[in-house]
Protein backbone atom coordinates (compact mmCIF):
# COMPACT_ATOMS: atom_id res chain seq x y z
CA UNK A 1 0.00 0.00 0.00
CA UNK A 2 1.46 3.34 -0.97
CA UNK A 3 1.21 6.88 0.23
CA UNK A 4 -1.34 8.87 -1.72
CA UNK A 5 -2.90 12.30 -1.92
CA UNK A 6 -6.49 12.71 -0.88
CA UNK A 7 -9.06 15.11 -2.29
CA UNK A 8 -12.78 15.51 -1.68
CA UNK A 9 -14.60 17.51 -4.34
CA UNK A 10 -18.17 18.67 -3.76
CA UNK A 11 -19.17 19.04 -7.40
CA UNK A 12 -19.25 16.50 -10.20
CA UNK A 13 -17.51 18.90 -12.58
CA UNK A 14 -14.69 19.33 -10.06
CA UNK A 15 -14.32 15.57 -9.70
CA UNK A 16 -14.08 15.22 -13.48
CA UNK A 17 -11.49 17.99 -13.63
CA UNK A 18 -9.40 16.28 -10.97
CA UNK A 19 -9.51 12.83 -12.54
CA UNK A 20 -8.69 14.27 -15.96
CA UNK A 21 -5.67 16.05 -14.54
CA UNK A 22 -4.01 12.96 -13.11
CA UNK A 23 -4.03 9.62 -14.89
CA UNK A 24 -2.84 7.86 -11.73
CA UNK A 25 -5.69 9.23 -9.62
CA UNK A 26 -8.64 7.02 -8.70
CA UNK A 27 -12.14 7.78 -7.55
CA UNK A 28 -13.12 6.26 -4.25
CA UNK A 29 -16.68 5.91 -2.95
CA UNK A 30 -17.28 2.91 -0.66
CA UNK A 31 -13.80 1.56 -1.38
CA UNK A 32 -14.98 -2.03 -0.97
CA UNK A 33 -12.83 -3.18 -3.87
CA UNK A 34 -10.26 -0.42 -4.30
CA UNK A 35 -8.86 -0.88 -0.79
CA UNK A 36 -8.38 -4.60 -1.41
CA UNK A 37 -6.52 -3.76 -4.60
CA UNK A 38 -4.38 -1.17 -2.86
CA UNK A 39 -3.47 -3.56 -0.06
CA UNK A 40 -2.31 -6.04 -2.69
CA UNK A 41 -0.35 -3.29 -4.48
CA UNK A 42 -2.41 -3.96 -7.60
CA UNK A 43 -3.64 -0.37 -7.51
CA UNK A 44 -1.13 2.25 -6.50
CA UNK A 45 -3.00 5.50 -6.96
CA UNK A 46 -1.17 8.79 -6.64
CA UNK A 47 -4.36 10.40 -5.45
CA UNK A 48 -7.71 9.27 -4.14
CA UNK A 49 -10.57 11.49 -5.17
CA UNK A 50 -13.24 10.85 -2.60
CA UNK A 51 -16.53 11.32 -4.41
CA UNK A 52 -18.72 10.40 -1.47
CA UNK A 53 -19.83 14.04 -1.02
CA UNK A 54 -21.05 14.47 -4.60
CA UNK A 55 -24.79 15.05 -4.95
CA UNK A 56 -25.48 11.69 -6.61
CA UNK A 57 -27.42 9.95 -3.85
CA UNK A 58 -31.04 10.19 -4.89
CA UNK A 59 -33.43 7.69 -6.40
CA UNK A 60 -36.01 9.45 -8.56
CA UNK A 61 -38.72 8.51 -10.97
CA UNK A 62 -38.06 9.65 -14.52
CA UNK A 63 -40.68 11.35 -16.72
CA UNK A 64 -41.07 8.21 -18.84
CA UNK A 65 -41.96 6.14 -15.78
CA UNK A 66 -38.53 4.68 -15.22
CA UNK A 67 -36.14 5.16 -12.34
CA UNK A 68 -32.96 7.16 -12.07
CA UNK A 69 -30.50 5.90 -9.45
CA UNK A 70 -27.70 8.19 -8.38
CA UNK A 71 -24.25 6.63 -8.68
CA UNK A 72 -23.59 7.04 -4.96
CA UNK A 73 -26.75 5.36 -3.67
CA UNK A 74 -25.45 2.63 -1.33
CA UNK A 75 -26.29 -0.92 -2.37
CA UNK A 76 -28.28 -1.50 0.82
CA UNK A 77 -30.37 1.65 0.38
CA UNK A 78 -31.10 0.68 -3.19
CA UNK A 79 -32.10 -2.88 -2.34
CA UNK A 80 -34.54 -1.63 0.31
CA UNK A 81 -35.84 1.37 -1.64
CA UNK A 82 -39.66 1.09 -1.84
CA UNK A 83 -39.73 1.80 -5.58
CA UNK A 84 -37.05 -0.80 -6.24
CA UNK A 85 -38.69 -3.38 -4.01
CA UNK A 86 -42.08 -2.88 -5.61
CA UNK A 87 -41.20 -2.25 -9.25
CA UNK A 88 -37.74 -3.80 -9.76
CA UNK A 89 -37.57 -6.64 -7.23
CA UNK A 90 -35.13 -8.50 -9.49
CA UNK A 91 -32.60 -5.72 -8.86
CA UNK A 92 -33.24 -5.76 -5.11
CA UNK A 93 -32.79 -9.51 -5.03
CA UNK A 94 -29.55 -9.46 -7.01
CA UNK A 95 -28.07 -6.85 -4.69
CA UNK A 96 -29.00 -8.92 -1.63
CA UNK A 97 -27.28 -11.95 -3.16
CA UNK A 98 -23.96 -10.13 -3.18
CA UNK A 99 -21.25 -9.62 -0.58
CA UNK A 100 -22.23 -9.12 3.07
CA UNK A 101 -24.42 -6.62 4.88
CA UNK A 102 -21.41 -4.53 5.89
CA UNK A 103 -20.06 -4.41 2.35
CA UNK A 104 -23.47 -3.60 0.88
CA UNK A 105 -23.77 -0.73 3.36
CA UNK A 106 -20.53 0.76 2.05
CA UNK A 107 -20.70 -0.15 -1.63
CA UNK A 108 -22.11 2.37 -4.11
CA UNK A 109 -24.16 1.79 -7.25
CA UNK A 110 -21.52 3.21 -9.57
CA UNK A 111 -18.73 1.45 -7.72
CA UNK A 112 -20.51 -1.86 -8.17
CA UNK A 113 -20.22 -1.42 -11.93
CA UNK A 114 -16.52 -0.67 -11.54
CA UNK A 115 -15.70 -3.83 -9.54
CA UNK A 116 -12.68 -5.58 -10.88
CA UNK A 117 -12.35 -9.30 -11.36
CA UNK A 118 -11.60 -11.60 -8.43
CA UNK A 119 -9.17 -13.71 -10.48
CA UNK A 120 -6.49 -14.91 -8.05
CA UNK A 121 -3.69 -13.98 -10.40
CA UNK A 122 -4.94 -10.43 -10.89
CA UNK A 123 -4.51 -9.90 -7.12
CA UNK A 124 -1.06 -11.48 -6.81
CA UNK A 125 1.57 -9.17 -8.25
CA UNK A 126 4.11 -12.00 -8.12
CA UNK A 127 2.30 -13.80 -10.95
CA UNK A 128 1.80 -12.85 -14.61
CA UNK A 129 -1.57 -11.32 -15.50
CA UNK A 130 -2.49 -9.55 -18.72
CA UNK A 131 -5.23 -7.57 -17.05
CA UNK A 132 -2.85 -6.17 -14.45
CA UNK A 133 0.24 -6.00 -16.61
CA UNK A 134 -0.60 -6.17 -20.33
CA UNK A 135 1.63 -8.55 -22.23
CA UNK A 136 2.83 -10.48 -19.16
CA UNK A 137 0.61 -13.49 -19.93
CA UNK A 138 -2.48 -15.10 -18.46
CA UNK A 139 -1.75 -17.42 -15.55
CA UNK A 140 -5.34 -18.63 -15.30
CA UNK A 141 -5.70 -20.24 -18.73
CA UNK A 142 -3.48 -23.13 -17.66
CA UNK A 143 -3.72 -22.52 -13.93
CA UNK A 144 -6.38 -22.42 -11.24
CA UNK A 145 -9.40 -21.53 -13.35
CA UNK A 146 -12.34 -23.10 -11.54
CA UNK A 147 -13.91 -19.67 -10.97
CA UNK A 148 -13.22 -18.41 -14.47
CA UNK A 149 -15.15 -17.61 -17.63
CA UNK A 150 -16.71 -20.06 -20.06
CA UNK A 151 -18.08 -17.47 -22.47
CA UNK A 152 -16.47 -14.61 -24.35
CA UNK A 153 -12.96 -15.56 -23.27
CA UNK A 154 -9.86 -14.62 -25.22
CA UNK A 155 -6.36 -15.96 -25.43
CA UNK A 156 -5.23 -13.15 -23.20
CA UNK A 157 -7.81 -13.33 -20.39
CA UNK A 158 -10.49 -15.61 -18.95
CA UNK A 159 -11.39 -13.46 -15.95
CA UNK A 160 -14.95 -13.09 -14.70
CA UNK A 161 -16.72 -9.88 -13.79
CA UNK A 162 -17.97 -10.52 -10.24
CA UNK A 163 -20.99 -8.23 -9.73
CA UNK A 164 -24.45 -9.55 -8.89
CA UNK A 165 -26.24 -6.22 -9.17
CA UNK A 166 -25.05 -5.72 -12.73
CA UNK A 167 -26.52 -9.01 -13.89
CA UNK A 168 -29.97 -7.75 -12.95
CA UNK A 169 -29.25 -4.34 -14.51
CA UNK A 170 -28.26 -6.07 -17.75
CA UNK A 171 -31.49 -8.07 -17.76
CA UNK A 172 -33.49 -4.93 -17.05
CA UNK A 173 -31.78 -3.04 -19.93
CA UNK A 174 -30.54 -0.23 -17.75
CA UNK A 175 -28.60 2.67 -19.18
CA UNK A 176 -25.51 4.21 -17.65
CA UNK A 177 -25.13 7.98 -17.47
CA UNK A 178 -21.57 9.24 -17.40
CA UNK A 179 -20.04 12.69 -17.20
CA UNK A 180 -16.77 13.70 -18.81
CA UNK A 181 -14.98 16.95 -19.63
CA UNK A 182 -17.19 17.30 -22.70
CA UNK A 183 -20.45 16.80 -20.82
CA UNK A 184 -22.81 13.94 -20.17
CA UNK A 185 -23.45 10.85 -22.33
CA UNK A 186 -25.39 7.63 -21.91
CA UNK A 187 -24.46 4.05 -22.65
CA UNK A 188 -26.69 1.02 -22.95
CA UNK A 189 -25.81 -1.34 -20.12
CA UNK A 190 -24.74 -4.00 -22.61
CA UNK A 191 -22.19 -1.55 -24.00
CA UNK A 192 -20.71 -0.58 -20.66
CA UNK A 193 -18.62 -3.66 -19.85
CA UNK A 194 -16.23 -5.16 -22.36
CA UNK A 195 -15.03 -8.57 -23.33
CA UNK A 196 -11.31 -9.07 -22.71
CA UNK A 197 -10.20 -9.49 -26.33
CA UNK A 198 -6.61 -8.38 -26.56
CA UNK A 199 -7.12 -5.47 -24.16
CA UNK A 200 -8.11 -7.23 -20.93
CA UNK A 201 -6.71 -4.32 -18.92
CA UNK A 202 -9.90 -2.45 -19.88
CA UNK A 203 -12.92 -3.73 -18.00
CA UNK A 204 -15.38 -1.27 -19.50
CA UNK A 205 -15.91 1.60 -21.91
CA UNK A 206 -15.80 4.38 -19.35
CA UNK A 207 -13.08 6.81 -20.38
CA UNK A 208 -10.37 7.53 -17.82
CA UNK A 209 -11.64 11.09 -17.44
CA UNK A 210 -15.28 10.17 -16.96
CA UNK A 211 -17.43 9.49 -13.92
CA UNK A 212 -20.64 7.48 -13.62
CA UNK A 213 -23.41 9.77 -12.44
CA UNK A 214 -26.47 7.55 -12.59
CA UNK A 215 -28.09 4.32 -13.69
CA UNK A 216 -31.46 4.60 -15.37
CA UNK A 217 -34.04 1.87 -15.49
CA UNK A 218 -36.75 1.74 -18.14
CA UNK A 219 -40.37 1.55 -16.95
CA UNK A 220 -40.66 -2.20 -17.51
CA UNK A 221 -39.60 -3.83 -14.23
CA UNK A 222 -40.87 -7.43 -14.59
CA UNK A 223 -42.09 -7.20 -11.01
CA UNK A 224 -44.38 -10.20 -11.28
CA UNK A 225 -42.21 -12.84 -12.91
CA UNK A 226 -38.55 -12.67 -12.11
CA UNK A 227 -35.83 -14.44 -10.16
CA UNK A 228 -32.14 -14.11 -9.36
CA UNK A 229 -30.42 -17.39 -8.55
CA UNK A 230 -26.80 -17.38 -7.44
CA UNK A 231 -24.85 -20.64 -7.16
CA UNK A 232 -21.69 -20.47 -5.06
CA UNK A 233 -19.34 -22.57 -2.94
CA UNK A 234 -20.97 -21.66 0.35
CA UNK A 235 -24.43 -20.35 1.07
CA UNK A 236 -23.45 -16.70 1.46
CA UNK A 237 -20.46 -14.39 1.03
CA UNK A 238 -18.84 -16.02 -1.96
CA UNK A 239 -18.60 -15.00 -5.58
CA UNK A 240 -20.87 -16.76 -8.05
CA UNK A 241 -19.89 -19.92 -9.81
CA UNK A 242 -22.91 -19.15 -11.94
CA UNK A 243 -25.75 -16.71 -11.40
CA UNK A 244 -28.88 -16.15 -13.46
CA UNK A 245 -31.19 -13.16 -13.64
CA UNK A 246 -34.46 -14.03 -15.32
CA UNK A 247 -37.38 -11.70 -16.04
CA UNK A 248 -40.54 -12.67 -17.86
CA UNK A 249 -43.69 -11.01 -19.12
CA UNK A 250 -46.25 -13.79 -19.16
CA UNK A 251 -49.30 -14.23 -21.31
CA UNK A 252 -51.26 -16.91 -19.51
CA UNK A 253 -49.17 -20.06 -19.66
CA UNK A 254 -46.92 -18.66 -22.36
CA UNK A 255 -43.95 -16.36 -22.30
CA UNK A 256 -44.63 -13.04 -23.92
CA UNK A 257 -41.25 -11.44 -23.37
CA UNK A 258 -38.12 -12.74 -21.69
CA UNK A 259 -34.89 -11.34 -20.34
CA UNK A 260 -32.02 -13.52 -19.30
CA UNK A 261 -28.57 -12.55 -18.06
CA UNK A 262 -25.80 -14.66 -16.54
CA UNK A 263 -23.14 -13.80 -14.01
CA UNK A 264 -20.00 -15.69 -13.07
CA UNK A 265 -19.46 -16.91 -16.61
CA UNK A 266 -17.87 -14.03 -18.52
CA UNK A 267 -15.95 -10.79 -18.45
CA UNK A 268 -19.29 -8.96 -18.52
CA UNK A 269 -22.92 -9.74 -17.70
CA UNK A 270 -23.80 -12.35 -20.33
CA UNK A 271 -26.98 -11.71 -22.24
CA UNK A 272 -27.99 -13.36 -25.50
CA UNK A 273 -30.95 -11.68 -27.14
CA UNK A 274 -31.49 -14.65 -29.48
CA UNK A 275 -32.23 -16.82 -26.45
CA UNK A 276 -34.73 -14.29 -25.18
CA UNK A 277 -36.35 -14.08 -28.61
CA UNK A 278 -36.57 -17.86 -28.73
CA UNK A 279 -38.63 -17.81 -25.54
CA UNK A 280 -41.14 -15.26 -26.76
CA UNK A 281 -44.44 -16.88 -27.54
CA UNK A 282 -43.34 -20.27 -26.23
CA UNK A 283 -45.01 -22.21 -23.43
CA UNK A 284 -43.30 -21.67 -20.09
CA UNK A 285 -42.01 -25.19 -19.67
CA UNK A 286 -38.73 -27.00 -19.24
CA UNK A 287 -38.36 -27.70 -22.96
CA UNK A 288 -38.58 -24.02 -23.84
CA UNK A 289 -36.23 -23.08 -21.03
CA UNK A 290 -33.73 -25.75 -22.02
CA UNK A 291 -33.75 -24.51 -25.59
CA UNK A 292 -33.07 -20.96 -24.41
CA UNK A 293 -30.28 -22.24 -22.16
CA UNK A 294 -28.67 -24.05 -25.06
CA UNK A 295 -28.71 -20.87 -27.14
CA UNK A 296 -27.16 -18.87 -24.30
CA UNK A 297 -24.45 -21.45 -23.82
CA UNK A 298 -23.69 -22.20 -27.44
CA UNK A 299 -20.04 -21.46 -27.87
CA UNK A 300 -19.31 -21.96 -24.17
CA UNK A 301 -15.82 -23.28 -23.63
CA UNK A 302 -14.54 -24.84 -20.43
CA UNK A 303 -11.00 -24.90 -19.12
CA UNK A 304 -9.31 -27.50 -16.90
CA UNK A 305 -11.25 -26.75 -13.73
CA UNK A 306 -14.37 -24.89 -14.83
CA UNK A 307 -15.97 -27.02 -17.55
CA UNK A 308 -18.61 -28.00 -14.99
CA UNK A 309 -19.97 -24.48 -15.22
CA UNK A 310 -21.48 -25.17 -18.64
CA UNK A 311 -23.84 -27.84 -17.39
CA UNK A 312 -24.38 -25.99 -14.12
CA UNK A 313 -25.33 -22.83 -16.00
CA UNK A 314 -27.76 -24.80 -18.16
CA UNK A 315 -29.47 -26.24 -15.09
CA UNK A 316 -29.46 -22.89 -13.33
CA UNK A 317 -31.04 -21.14 -16.32
CA UNK A 318 -33.84 -23.71 -16.48
CA UNK A 319 -34.41 -23.45 -12.72
CA UNK A 320 -34.39 -19.67 -12.63
CA UNK A 321 -36.76 -19.34 -15.57
CA UNK A 322 -39.03 -21.84 -13.83
CA UNK A 323 -38.95 -19.77 -10.66
CA UNK A 324 -39.70 -16.62 -12.65
CA UNK A 325 -42.54 -18.20 -14.59
CA UNK A 326 -44.09 -19.59 -11.42
CA UNK A 327 -43.86 -16.25 -9.68
CA UNK A 328 -41.72 -17.83 -6.96
CA UNK A 329 -38.50 -15.85 -7.08
CA UNK A 330 -35.48 -17.19 -5.25
CA UNK A 331 -35.30 -15.89 -1.68
CA UNK A 332 -31.90 -14.48 -0.75
CA UNK A 333 -32.39 -15.17 2.95
CA UNK A 334 -33.64 -18.75 2.80
CA UNK A 335 -30.90 -20.67 1.07
CA UNK A 336 -33.15 -23.49 -0.07
CA UNK A 337 -33.50 -23.26 -3.82
CA UNK A 338 -37.13 -22.79 -4.73
Amino acid sequence: MINFQYARPNEVADAVRQIAADPRARFIAGGTNLLDLMKSDVEQPSRLIDISRLPLKSVEETPDGGLRIGALVPNTDLAYHPLVESRYPLLASAIMAGASQQLRNMASTGGNLMQRTRCYYFYDIATPCNKREPGSGCSAIEGLNRMHAILGTSESCIAVYPSDMSIALAALEATVRVMGPGGERTMAFADFHRLPGDTPERDNNLEPNEIITAIELPPQGFAKNHSYLKIRDRLSYAFALVSVAAALEMDGEAVKEARLALGGVAHKPWRVEAAEAALAGQPANEASFAKAADIVLSGAKGFEHNAFKIDLARRAIIRTLTQAANGTPQSQSSKKIR
Binding site: Y120, Y121, D124, A126, T127, S139, E142, G143, L144
Partner: peptide, 12 residues
Protein backbone atom coordinates in the same frame (compact mmCIF):
# COMPACT_ATOMS: atom_id res chain seq x y z
CA UNK B 1 -5.80 -24.19 0.02
CA UNK B 2 -5.27 -23.57 -3.67
CA UNK B 3 -1.62 -23.73 -4.66
CA UNK B 4 -0.50 -23.03 -8.20
CA UNK B 5 2.20 -25.64 -8.47
CA UNK B 6 3.84 -23.83 -11.40
CA UNK B 7 4.70 -21.01 -9.02
CA UNK B 8 4.52 -22.84 -5.68
CA UNK B 9 2.30 -20.02 -4.49
CA UNK B 10 -0.94 -20.20 -2.53
CA UNK B 11 -3.45 -18.29 -4.62
CA UNK B 12 -6.32 -17.98 -2.13
Amino acid sequence: TLTDHRFGRIMN
